[in-house]
Design a protein around this nucleic acid. Structure first.
Lengths: 204, 204
DNA sequence: CAATCAAATGACTCCTCAGTCATTTTATGG
DNA sequence: CCATAAAATGACTGAGGAGTCATTTGATTG
């Protein structure tokens, strides 16, 4: 009974998972991991709690799945837009733009993203699983920087340091915008951030 | 019975508070707010749980007190060292140095700091009390930047944006160093960060 | 030393919530 | 239409932990 390589069962199952993850994102974004309850998620998804445990094995499992899903999408978009840009400066601008735009349209995910990646220091709670996800993210950017160093487009520098530096700047602006602390439009913030990243405060 | 304006009672009370806060810092840093128990803190302080409630009204109260204490000290040191430096560039370098040095010797506090200020987006949980503390921090730096703009030392720019930008960069490096992800010495990181902040990636 | 007061204690209560599972509902296909 | 299997349900359980308070310990003073 498989159509296009997927049974009906699989399709329904995927749909349920997506439903649950979508509800979970909203709830986790609003309450944070600790204060969110599985009942909250069930209510938001309009299903019974027991059903959730047919698709996920624990509260943490749901959380991790929601985080991974968003992270994969964000990372893929970032990768594609950077690959499409020519020259390191354009690539960095693409990095900034893609991520700020994604943040604007995926606020719930970004809240979860920040609550995890703003706080990687609490290793005890998560056995480093989030640290690994973070490092994987940084790796992509690091590779791009390294290539530019190799071609001589960038001078030799500690690319690992620079990669984190860039991540943190963009992460900070995402948060500013999410909290509506930024006084500028997104275009202005993209421009200003790109300038600061490239030229620093001294050359403005 | 007051000696130097303080009764014995007050001295003992302050000592107990300090004891509890010190234990709390360690526990919160290790387990995070949600996973830390008041029993953990009591055990770490070598006192009974009931005693803690003679000095603090709730778990959150302890947390907030520990955070505020560290924050006040960090902020004061930052303010003093910046005031002692001449010129905006030296002030910024002082900012970076003071904070990285403080992070090196107050790791427990910095863990707590990051778990809060990495995640300000979860406003529901804390009624914005942490957001206020953060904004107060940023204000000091913003004032320094504004003064430099007024004297013409810096060109006109969105000082609020720049202040966050600087905070986030330093915060990021603090985290890198805390997790021992940084491959450089502290001096190297101070130097590199100051350079990047001032000149950006393009001018290295 | 006895009486009084303050400080400390930890067993206890109460509540929340993750995860379970016997029961009910819905889908399948003969 | 019935039999059987699969999916969904939500009342229930057990664990864990915040905050309380009757009791104990220790200090103070006449």
């Amino acid at each position: 009974m498989a159509i296009a390589g997927r049974t009906k069962q699989e399709v329904v199952s995927e749909y349920r998972c997506a439903e649950i993850l979508s509800a979970a994102r909203t709830v986790f974004a609003t309450k944070g991991f600790a204060d969110a309850t599985v009942d909250d998620i069930a209510a938001a998804a309009g299903i019974a709690k027991g059903t959730i445990y047919l698709y996920f094995s624990s509260k943490r499992d749901i959380y991790l799945a929601a985080l991974k899903q968003g992270l994969t999408e964000l990372q893929e978009r970032t990768r594609v837009s950077m690959a499409a840009a020519t020259g390191i400066r354009a690539k960095l601008r693409a990095f900034v733009r893609t991520r700020l735009e994604y943040a604007e349209t995926n606020r719930d995910f970004i809240r979860i993203y920040h609550s995890e990646f703003g706080n990687l220091t609490n290793a005890a709670a998560c056995h480093g699983e989030f640290q690994q996800l973070y490092l994987k993210q940084a790796k992509t950017l690091e590779t791009v920087l390294q290539n530019s160093v190799t071609t001589g487009e960038l001078p030799s520098l500690r690319v690992d340091f620079a990669a984190f530096f860039i991540y943190d700047m963009v992460k900070g602006v995402m948060m500013q915008r999410l909290l509506e602390w930024s006084t500028g439009t997104m275009e202005e913030d993209i421009e200003l951030l790109s300038q600061l990243m490239w030229k620093g405060l001294g050359a403005l």
